[in-house]
Amino acid sequence: MTQINQIQSFNIQPLKPTNAVSTSGEIQSKFAGFLKDSINEVNEAGLASSDLTNKLVRGENVDLHNVMIASEKSSIMLQTTMEIRNKVIDAYQEMMRMQM
């Protein structure tokens, strides 16, 4: 049902020239969507890591190195997220300090 809705909303988008300048609202929503997708990806990596750890603890057939690699991957992705957050907050604070 959600997929059908998506297709409909895609079809009723107004035609516009390809080199049109995006409004600030569009850019904001694009950025928000990108941020949400990235955070979801990081969350999925963390969930995969904890899933593998649980399997190892329960004694299922998983390799120890795969558990360690999954946890390292999720740790690197989380660190990347934190770095990007720091950059965004730095930029925001720079804007707020601007003299009018």
């Binding site: 390799d63 190195h65 795969n66 690699i69 390292e72 991957k73």
Partner: peptide, 17 residues
């Protein structure tokens, strides 16, 4: 970005086998 890590992981699994 995790391509090399995935390749190493396959090698580790192979050596375990």
């Amino acid at each position: 970005i995790f391509n090399s890590i995935n390749i190493s992981a396959s090698a580790l699994t192979m050596q375990r086998l």
